[in-house]
């Protein structure tokens, strides 16, 4: 399932997914765009270059797992899984529609390829710990990836999970923080400051790596490095990102978290505002 794509091909794929995700959300009238777009390059790297998964067998026991703890970023997970042929791309245009299989928050019950249902912030890292623990017990050599939001780290349960993971030496657990520095009510340093974030994770006895979450080489090398550490510690990769990247009208502002589109004109204008270009929709 891993693919060798050039940087140009990766850029093109990311740009297309950004356009498709924006269209999916505009069609439904509203949705969590900013935090989905901020992790496009991370999600593509995981599913195209790093993780061992099989679209023909989504429940394959030895697969790597991904828990999208910031479940509201589900549109990017749905888009990547559809492009990786876990389900038809035609499903994508049903995001948040009545009776859809693709609800606003990541849903393992209805979507092939999703490893954990999420949506209430702060719970995914605990589930990832459970899966990492089970993998160790069953002597599987797979990795458990978990993407947490920066605002999500306000939730205390993350820090319970952080202690559990290091205490149980879960070095098969790799967490990724989408550090776009914005949460619903404003910048993270204004709402509730996360800094010193690296020191916090180090003090919980985790390996910590920092990377540019929009730089293909840095994302890939940080993930591959984390996989090889095997030093009895879980790893946190703090990915510096920009919320709603390349969505010119809402880039790097808090309100990009959940956009509202009231008309077809607004929908069309929004798609035109995406600086990375227009793409043919796959549905």
């Amino acid at each position: 399932m891993k693919e060798n794509l050039t940087i140009d091909e990766l850029n093109d794929l990311a740009n297309e997914l950004r356009y498709v995700i924006a269209d999916m959300i505009c069609r439904s009238g509203s949705g969590h765009l900013g935090g989905a777009v901020s992790i496009i390059e991370i999600m593509i790297t995981l599913y195209y270059r790093v993780m061992n998964v099989k679209n023909s067998e989504p429940g394959w026991n030895n697969r790597d797992r991904l828990i999208l703890s910031k479940g509201h970023a589900a549109p990017v997970l749905y888009a990547v899984l559809a492009y990786k042929k876990f389900f038809p791309k035609s499903w994508l245009k049903t995001l948040n529609c009545d009776g859809t299989k693709l609800p606003s928050h990541a849903d393992a019950r209805t979507v092939p390829g999703i490893d954990m249902t999420t949506g209430s912030l702060g719970q995914g890292l605990s589930a990832a710990c459970g899966m990492a623990f089970a993998a160790k017990k069953d002597k599987r050599a797979n990795h458990i990836f978990c993407i947490v939001g920066d605002g999500e780290l306000n939730e205390g349960q993350n820090w319970e999970a952080a202690m559990f993971a290091s205490h149980n030496r879960l070095d098969n657990l790799i967490a990724i923080c989408d550090y776009n520095k914005l949460q619903i009510d404003g910048f993270t340093y204004e709402v509730i400051d996360l800094e010193p974030l690296t020191d916090k994770w180090k003090s919980f006895n985790w390996n910590v790596i920092e990377a540019d979450g929009h730089n293909w080489n840095e994302i890939f090398s940080s993930l591959e490095r984390a996989k090889k550490l095997n030093n009895g510690k879980p790893t946190m990769i703090i990915m510096h990102t920009t919320k709603a990247k390349d969505c010119s009208t809402i880039e790097n502002i808090a309100s990009s978290h959940n956009i509202k589109i009231g008309s077809i004109t607004e929908h069309q204008n929004f798609l035109k505002s995406i600086t990375s270009g227009e793409y043919k929709l796959p549905y």
Partner: peptide, 10 residues
């Protein structure tokens, strides 16, 4: 809270 989450993952 973590106990329930870890249990769900297991």
């Amino acid at each position: 809270a973590n106990m329930i989450g870890v249990a769900a993952g297991l």
